[in-house]
Design a protein around this nucleic acid. Structure first.
Lengths: 249, 249
DNA sequence: AAAAACTTTGCAAGTTTTTGCTGTTTTCGT
DNA sequence: ACGAAAACAGCAAAAACTTGCAAAGTTTTT
């Protein structure tokens, strides 16, 4: 097993569970505890995670529901959210997934915009309820403890009975070749159902997550109609997505 | 368990309840009181909380009035919540409605109690997700803007497919003659479905709401199995409920 | 193609951190 | 002021960490 693979696995685990034990890692990776220790030390130095006694945690693990510690990331997300909101129009019925970027969208929706929004995300639902003119319908199901996101058959089932105008997908890793990927199996089931239930799909991604691939695949790039990033649509970083029939915003 | 996890839990508890007892922490975290003491001491040094004799409080505890503004009402509700939590046992499947009293229950559930909870309340769901051992299933539907509570056919329908051990109804006005009443038609539809879906029903009511009646009727007193108030079960204020076959707590 | 230089990995010895336990001292409510 | 509960200090075992080193594998140089 390559060092790269190991470190990627470690990062995945940290992102997924917000913490890992060195012992567990050394166990599941079949390498000595020292190797894992060195890997984690490196990742810590690169600020990809936080090393702690006995293991590692993701950044923002300790922050008490206070958005992000990362100012740059946050301003990128707001920029994306502003662009996204401009795509909405009165009377639309839309789907919104979870994630911090979608949270910003939910907050930025104009007070007078009349919408019907379906969502499986507790946080997004909460933010949307601040808007009087937005009818919020929660897609109920088993809630994930970390993501506060409903998953499972109930959600997928409810989605199969919908046909909405727009689906706005928040978090996710994007690559021209591999499409949209995630590191949680249950989440991609829901996202796939969301895409099926919508006439058009919008993906929100901060440029950091472009050209990166995770374990599970949600959909191909061909399923996406609009890609919103904080970059200028003419930015060369987006070149690899131009062959697809999609709108860059 | 990592030290960071413990400290996050402690901070969460402090932020949630504005005070914690070291004994409770050591109990629910399954570590010695000394370890908790050292953790709290550290967090105090980092100005993340304020250590006091026997426990810790969050900063700005005295100025905190989000809940009710009414400190007496709040302490009544906490007392009710404590009694209610003692009715729960490992492995139960329960239903919880919304309301501030039920919120206190959600917060006070011991960390090691294993439960499955169905709820149509955003706030309760959110609070329950703080507990690792509680599986939370949200009953999805149209959300009421003020109550952050799901109502409508979807919820009632989902409830009709359930048969759970216990239903805990929070807010509500109670009267021996008129039973349980509410002022929202859509809410009582859901509460009625909740009662039907449960083997036993527990009502939580602060004594202020005893012997008061609202516009719409949820159910008769005969449908109630347990009544939890902040009063002593022998209090004369409860006399009018004694003719019914119910447990006073 | 062999040698040299470098990287990666696992091991072992020694150090530090963490944690629970033991008394002892301090604090608090009555 | 008294007894109980809480805080503290010191100790010891266990777990985690550090460092140095050598074997195995890679890459670069000659």
């Amino acid at each position: 097993m390559l060092k790269e693979e190991r470190q990627k696995y470690i990062l995945d685990q940290v992102h997924l569970h917000h913490r890992v034990l060195l012992n567990d890692l050394s166990d599941s990776l079949n390498v000595s505890i020292d190797t894992v220790r060195r890997d984690v030390k490196e990742l810590d130095k690169e600020k990809k995670l936080k090393k702690v006694h006995g293991g590692a945690t993701s950044f923002g693990f300790m922050t008490f529901t206070k958005d992000d510690g990362n100012i740059y990331l946050k301003s990128k997300k707001i920029s994306i959210a502003e662009k996204t909101v401009s795509l909405l129009s009165d009377g639309q019925v839309i789907l919104m997934s979870g994630g911090t970027t979608n949270m910003e969208v939910a907050k930025l929706i104009p007070k007078k915009l009349v919408l019907t929004v379906f969502t499986p995300s507790l946080h997004v639902a909460m933010a949307l309820l601040e808007h009087e003119n937005v009818e919020v319908i929660f897609l109920g199901g088993k809630l994930l403890h970390d993501a506060k996101f409903a998953v499972g058959g109930t959600v997928v089932n409810a989605l199969s009975q919908l046909r909405v105008d727009l689906c706005i997908l928040g978090t996710g890793y994007l690559d021209a070749e591999f499409g949209l990927t995630e590191f949680d199996w249950e989440v991609i089931q829901v996202k796939q159902a969301m895409i099926r239930a919508a006439k058009k799909t919008v993906i929100l991604t901060v440029s950091d997550k472009l050209h990166s691939v995770q374990k599970y695949k949600t959909c191909d790039m061909t399923a996406v109609h609009t890609l919103v990033t904080e970059l200028d649509p003419s930015d060369p970083l987006l070149d690899s997505f131009r062959p697809f029939e999609l709108m860059l915003v």
